[in-house]
Nucleic acid binder design. Structure first.
Length: 882
RNA sequence: GGGAUUAUAGCUCAGUUGGCUAGAGUACCACGUUGACAUCGUGGGGGUCACUGGUUCGAGCCCAGUUAAUCCCACCA
């Protein structure tokens, strides 16, 4: 049963209704996706926020785009699933838990793995639900019954299954490779997790004397402390300066070891001295050279970033920075330091803690990328997955084409422990879905599991199918996979999107989504990235508290364009809040003037009625198309313009005449139109402003469905589009604007009504006679007089010309003849310019032959209208000049 | 070093495959308590669409170059 409009507040108060509506939605089960055999579903998997996370503007943007698409498709009747969940965020969470323990005076090493994991799970229980509660406040209509967590049991099973399968296929291997080591997080990182920062540093030039007593070579380095791990010097084989040294030995200063000089084309002859010190254990390039030339690999650092015993007794135990100072000092004192140049270069840093990472060789687990990259490239090249905007495919190609093996082991505790066991008797390694009891090789029972856990992104890569029940062949999996649209920011294309694509292809044989919608970052009002450390973050929840979720949602959709960053500003939210209030009040007005349900069928519709119904059809069609193209910004602009610029500004004002008039039949017709258009408007706006529209919907008499969220999306209805009336109404509106214009120009008191004399242009007479009430109401006319072609009006008049009519207003003393002539002359000049433009165009044979016919006709129509107006103006001017 | 993006009213940005006498919000100015809304209404001022060439009947949109800003990628010690 509908509520009484008298109960509506004068100003929309979102705070009072949002929670109530959300709870009603959720408890009604309306978010729960239903499989309908034979119908194509619309599916979105939510990028799972970290359990450590709190809702920020990035989530808000992500969420709104997904929710509006979800709501649009649900209203269209598609079986719709928006699947939510959270990510265990291995490294991020572990850091938080370590910090919490530190505050209690505890260290993770002291309490041990099991105890630590208890703390981590406690953290998850305490904070894991926080972000999902916050998403509810945004109005997110996800299917919470299918919510998943990347470390729940079934998900864990999927991760183990993937790991074992890939291991057995040879796609996962364990080996000693050079990896990026974060000495603070104390774990290996993948290449994607290293961020490069430019740092001002120095280039140290060091002499390595020849073993036979000669001069030797001078090498240049940015990291002098690593020289302690040098096992050779490399030069370019073409470099004649050094030809005689290749194969000979030089003495490594400070260490006193003899190391060979090798030739490798990797060395750039033009850089530095053309001789490069080789530290294979601590530099990826040197590692490659060492592999080719057979140099030894000597690791001189511990995993905490300090120097180990191989660095020599003098340096052992020092941090790298300390070691660098001492090495430089020693070199200088012993005369090996040739010079120091200032030098800026890129330094790799940890994406979590931003400390400098050390490349070092260690035993880690890797995913072999080459066999996976090919199909992943084909899927996008072949169009199975489409990026919006398209330019992100190029970024994807570039990354995928140059990809190196992915280091997936992390020396952390919180995460999916790698399902590999080692036999303590014979050293056998067993990779298995379940913990083995005995060693298959030596029957020993003394087994221990691999200590490392997997990269968080290894498990999130499985999100589109693991959440649907894989590896079991569930009905959900069969029905909802592959999903439809993935919505995310460009910052995680490599971390997540690319890895989901190759994982989906490898394990499901199909790309995980048709479309990837990439949106931009929400920046602050000055265009800076929002961040905790800069303290410029805006809390979406605070915005919701003061402006309402709908205002926040709409402001995030207004004026955005796929892939482009956007700035948050209070002004934008205020504008959206004002829009919400405008719609609320328009609805309040309509509802106050309805007397029960009034159907459109059988009503005698007038010009304005047919016009607004036509505008509604256009709006429905365009907004639908924009959603189909993921053009939220354009869809938002259209609903805004339709609701405010057409429905409120014009139709409601026009309707008042009939609504407050005496004609009972007209009254009923207008009520029917108001009701119908309001209902359409609410539905079109619902994906953006779900709370407001839902609330208002419940006041509507005779509404189709119980809930706006479940109502049918308005499809374009040809029987409600009236081309002729649509055009005629534009002509009437032009006249009204012209009158208002004149009145404002002459500073006529708004209360002063004046006679309006109209001389219709050919073909407009009937329309204008029918629009009389509109002129009376919106053009402040006391009465409307229709003139014939010949009879010129007498007295002091102001006038204007539109495409539909010549109009005059007798304003007596207010009329200043000179000003009137000036104004008309200006208008005349404008028209003359426009006419010249059109004539030029139409005189151009190229335009006539090549432009589309409709356009040529339109141009001809414009020209003839303008010529008619010009003629009228010219007559009027000559009358005035008398 | 490679690549991408952006450059449109004071400010924030739209402008989807070239048809625009270039739009919106906001700010500004004038007037306004006309029976939904002052979180409002009506009207107004304000832009050689960064620059230079080119393609085209037609360019804010396409192409080339220039300038400026931002971002991503890259193993030059």
């Amino acid at each position: 049963m509908e509520k009484n409009a008298a109960a509506m507040e004068k100003t929309y108060a979102p705070q009072d209704i949002e929670q109530r509506i959300y709870e009603a939605w959720e408890s009604s089960g309306a978010f729960v996706a239903k499989r309908v055999p034979g119908r194509k579903p619309f599916t979105i998997v939510m990028p799972p926020p970290n359990i450590t996370g709190q809702l920020h503007m990035g989530h808000a943007m992500d969420g709104v785009l997904q929710d509006s698409l979800t709501r649009y498709h649900r209203m269209k009747g598609d079986p719709t699933l928006w699947l939510p969940g959270t990510d265990h965020a291995s490294i991020a969470t572990e850091v938080k838990v370590v910090e919490k323990l530190a505050a209690e005076g505890k260290k993770k090493e002291d309490i041990g793995r099991e105890e630590f994991l208890k703390h981590a799970w406690a953290w998850k229980r305490e904070y894991g639900g926080r972000i999902t509660r916050q998403l509810r406040r945004m109005g997110a209509s996800c299917d919470w019954s299918r919510e998943r967590f990347t470390m729940d049991d079934r998900y864990y099973a999927a991760v183990r299954e993937v790991f074992v399968r890939m291991y057995e296929k040879g796609l996962i291997y364990r080996g000693n490779r050079i990896i990026n080591w974060c000495p603070v997080c104390r774990t290996a990182l993948s290449d994607a997790e290293v961020e490069y920062e430019e740092q001002a540093s120095s280039l140290w030039h060091i002499r390595y004397p020849a073993a036979d007593g000669g001069e030797g070579v001078v090498v240049a380095t940015t990291r002098p402390e690593t020289m302690l791990g040098d096992t050779g010097v490399a030069v370019n084989p073409e470099d004649e300066r050094y030809t005689r040294l290749v194969g000979k030995k030089v003495i490594l200063p400070l260490a006193g070891r003899e190391i060979p000089v090798v030739a490798d084309s990797y060395v750039d002859m033009t850089f530095g001295t053309g001789a490069v010190k080789m530290t294979p254990a601590h530099d990826p390039n040197d590692f490659e050279v060492a592999k080719r030339t057979g140099l030894e690999v000597l690791c001189v650092t511990n995993l905490d970033g300090t120097m180990n015993e191989k660095a020599g007794a003098r340096y052992q135990g020092l941090t790298e920075a300390e070691c660098r100072r001492l090495v430089v000092k020693d070199l200088e004192e012993q005369g090996y330091l040739v010079k120091i140049e200032p030098y800026t270069h890129n330094v790799g840093t940890c994406y979590r803690c931003h400390s400098t990472v050390d490349p070092l060789v260690s035993l880690q687990w890797f995913v072999k990328m080459e066999p996976l990259a090919g199909p992943a490239l084909d899927a996008v090249r072949g169009g199975d997955t489409r990026f919006i905007p398209d330019r992100f495919s190029k970024i994807y190609y570039n990354w995928m084409e140059n990809i190196r093996d992915w280091c997936i082991s992390r020396q952390l505790w919180w995460g999916h422990r790698i399902p590999a066991w080692y036999c303590e008797s014979c050293g056998e390694m067993i990779v298995s879905r379940e913990a083995p009891d005995i060693c298959p090789s030596c029957r020993s029972e003394r087994l221990h599991q691999e200590e490392d856990v997997l990269d968080t992104w290894f498990s999130s890569a499985l999100w589109p199918f693991a959440t649907l029940g894989w590896p079991e062949n569930t009905e959900d999996l069969r029905y909802f996979y592959p999903t439809s649209t993935l919505v995310t920011g460009y910052d995680i294309i490599f971390f997540w999107v690319a890895r989901m694509i190759f994982s989906g292809l490898e394990h499901m044989g199909q790309t995980p989504f048709d479309t990837v919608l990439i949106h931009g970052l929400v920046r602050d009002a000055q265009g800076r990235k929002m961040s905790k450390s800069a303290g410029n973050g805006i809390d979406p929840l605070e915005i919701i508290d003061s402006y309402g979720a709908d205002a926040l949602r709409f402001s995030l959709c207004q004026g955005i364009s796929p892939g482009a960053d956007t700035r948050y500003s209070t002004e934008r939210v205020e504008a959206a809040r004002n829009f919400a209030n405008k719609v609320w009040n328009a609805a309040r007005f309509v509802l106050m003037n309805l007397e029960g349900e009034e159907k459109l069928e059988g009503k005698r519709l007038g010009l304005a009625d047919k016009w607004i119904l036509s505008r509604a059809q256009i709006a429905a069609r365009e907004i639908g198309e924009h959603f189909d193209n993921c053009e939220h910004g354009l869809a938002a602009a259209k609903i805004y313009d339709f609701a405010w610029g057409e429905f409120c500004d014009w139709y409601i004002e026009l309707a008042k005449a009939d609504l407050f008039g005496e004609d009972a039949e007209r009254k009923r017709a207008v009520r029917a139109v108001l009701q119908h258009v309001l209902e359409t408007l609410l539905k079109l706006l619902h994906p953006f402003m779900p709370f407001l529209t839902e609330e208002v919907y419940h006041f509507l008499p005779g509404r189709e469905e119980e809930s706006c969220m479940l109502s049918a999306w308005p499809e374009y209805d040809e029987s409600l589009f009236f081309e002729q009336e649509d055009r005629q109404m534009q002509g009437v509106m032009d006249i009204i604007r012209a009158v208002r214009n004149l009145r404002a120009d002459l500073k006529v008191q708004p209360g002063h009504r004046a006679r309006l004399l109209l001389r219709a242009q050919p073909g407009w007479e009937e329309t204008l006679r029918g629009a009389e009430t509109h002129f009376l109401r919106l053009a402040s006319a006391s009465e409307v007089e229709y003139l014939n072609e010949g009879n010129a009006p007498e007295g002091k008049l102001v006038s204007a010309v539109t495409g539909a009519a010549e109009l005059f207003i007798p304003l007596g003393e207010l009329v200043d003849l000179d000003k009137e002539i000036k104004r008309l002359q200006k208008e005349y000049d404008n028209l003359t310019g426009e006419i010249a433009r059109a004539q030029g165009k139409l005189a151009n044979p190229g335009f006539l032959s090549k432009a589309p016919e409709a356009l040529v006709n339109q141009e001809r129509q414009k020209l003839s209208d303008n010529l008619a107006m010009q003629k009228t103006l010219s007559q009027r001017l000559s009358d005035l000049r008398g």
